[in-house]
C-alpha cells in the first residue's frame, strides 16, 4: 500500500512538471506580451518592466529561474494585477471556488445515488421513467443554459433568490445546483444501471429470503456493491467540477479562481495562469489518488499495485 502511494506521488510530481513546462512555453508562444497597450511603451520602460517581472534574458534561463522559484513556493507576481502576488490572489480566490465545488460535489454524489437507487428499485414505473428523462435532459443541457434559466425563473420572475454574488447562504443555492446538475444526472444513470445488476445477484436474494425490509435490502446490501462504479467516477467528477466552476462563476459573478483563470489567459498573465493550473492539476491528481485508495478499501478483491 505504501509502495503504491509512493509511486503515485512520484507520478504527481512528473505530471506537475509536464503541466508547468507546457503552460510556460505555450504562454510564451502566444503573440502579444503582458505589457502591450494601445500605445507602445518606451523601450526603456518596457525593459525595466520585463526585468522587474523576471521576463528578460534567454528563455531557457527564465524557465529554470521560474522552476527554482516554484520549488521555494513562490508563484511570483501577477503581471496584470500589479503588486499582488499570485500566492495572495489564490489565497483569496481558492476558498471561494472550493466551497462552491465542495457543495456541488456533495449534491451530485448524494443526490445522484439516491435518485439512481430509487429509479432502479421502481424499474419501469413512472418514477423510473421521469427520473431518467430528467437525467438525460440535465446531461444534454450545458451549465450555461441551466444557470441562466434558473436565474430567469428564481431570480428575475419570482425574485426568490439573488441573481448572483457571494457571501450569503441564499446566493449559494443556484450556483451549486447549476454546477451539480449534469453530474448528479450522470451518477443517477450509473447508479441505476449497476443497482439493477446488483439486484439480480444471489446475496440480494438471500437478504430478501431472510425477510429484510426492501429498503434495507437496497440501501444496505445492494448499494454496497452498486456504488463501486460511482466511486471510480469521483476522480473525473472532480476534474469536471473544476472546469465547470469556471463557467458557473462567470454566470453568477462569483469571485473565485475560475474568473481569474479566464482573464489570465486573455491578459497573457503567465504567472497567474501557471499558479492556477498548478493548483488545479495538483488537486485533481491528489483527488484521483484518494479515490483509488477508497476504491481499494471498499472492494477488497482489488489489489493496488501501480
Amino acid at each position: 500500500m505504501i509502495r503504491f502511494i509512493a509511486q503515485r506521488m512520484l507520478g504527481l510530481v512528473v505530471i506537475l512538471f509536464c503541466v508547468i513546462s507546457i503552460t510556460f512555453f505555450l504562454v510564451r508562444l502566444m503573440p502579444g506580451g503582458p505589457f502591450d497597450r494601445e500605445r507602445k511603451l518606451p523601450e526603456r520602460i518596457e525593459k525595466a518592466l520585463l526585468a522587474r517581472y523576471k521576463l528578460d534574458g534567454p528563455i531557457l534561463n527564465q524557465y529554470f529561474g521560474y522552476l527554482g522559484d516554484l520549488l521555494h513556493g513562490d508563484l511570483r507576481i501577477s503581471t496584470k494585477y500589479r503588486d499582488r502576488s499570485v500566492n495572495e490572489i489564490l489565497a483569496d480566490a481558492l476558498p471561494v471556488s472550493m466551497t462552491l465545488g465542495g457543495i456541488a460535489f456533495l449534491l451530485a454524489t448524494v443526490g445522484g445515488v439516491l435518485v439512481g437507487s430509487l429509479a432502479a428499485s421502481h424499474q419501469h414505473s413512472w418514477i423510473d421513467r421521469s427520473a431518467m428523462l430528467g437525467a438525460l435532459l440535465a446531461i444534454s443541457l450545458p451549465s450555461f443554459v441551466i444557470g441562466p434559466l434558473l436565474i430567469l425563473i428564481f431570480a428575475i420572475y419570482t425574485r426568490l433568490l439573488p441573481v448572483g454574488g457571494w457571501g450569503t447562504v441564499r446566493s449559494l443555492i443556484l450556483p451549486s445546483i447549476t454546477l451539480a446538475a449534469p453530474y448528479a444526472a450522470y451518477i443517477a444513470r450509473l447508479t441505476r444501471a449497476s443497482m439493477l445488476e446488483a439486484l439480480t445477484q444471489d446475496f440480494v436474494r438471500t437478504a430478501r429470503a431472510k425477510g429484510l425490509p426492501e429498503s434495507q435490502v437496497i440501501y444496505k446490501h445492494a448499494l454496497k456493491v452498486a456504488i463501486l462504479p460511482v466511486v471510480s467516477f469521483l476522480g473525473p467528477l472532480a476534474a469536471n467540477l473544476l472546469t465547470g466552476s469556471i463557467v458557473v462563476e462567470n454566470i453568477f459573478s462569483i469571485p473565485g479562481a475560475g474568473g481569474f483563470f479566464v482573464n489570465s489567459v486573455l491578459n497573457r498573465d503567465g504567472f497567474l495562469l501557471g499558479g492556477i493550473v498548478i493548483v488545479y492539476c495538483a488537486l485533481l491528481v491528489g483527488f484521483n489518488l484518494m479515490v483509488d485508495i477508497l476504491y481499494g478499501w471498499l472492494d477488497r478483491r482489488i489489489i493496488l499495485y501501480g
Binding site: 507546457i22 502579444g32 472546469t243 493550473v277 492539476c281
Partner: peptide, 24 residues
C-alpha cells in the same frame, strides 16, 4: 496520464496560443 490532465483548461490555453499564429 492524458486522462489526468484537465482537458478543457489546456484547450483554452492551446487555442488562444495557436489561433493568432495561424491567423497571421
Amino acid at each position: 496520464i492524458l486522462y489526468a490532465i484537465p482537458r478543457l483548461i489546456f484547450l483554452l490555453i492551446l487555442i488562444s496560443a495557436v489561433d493568432p499564429i495561424l491567423r497571421a
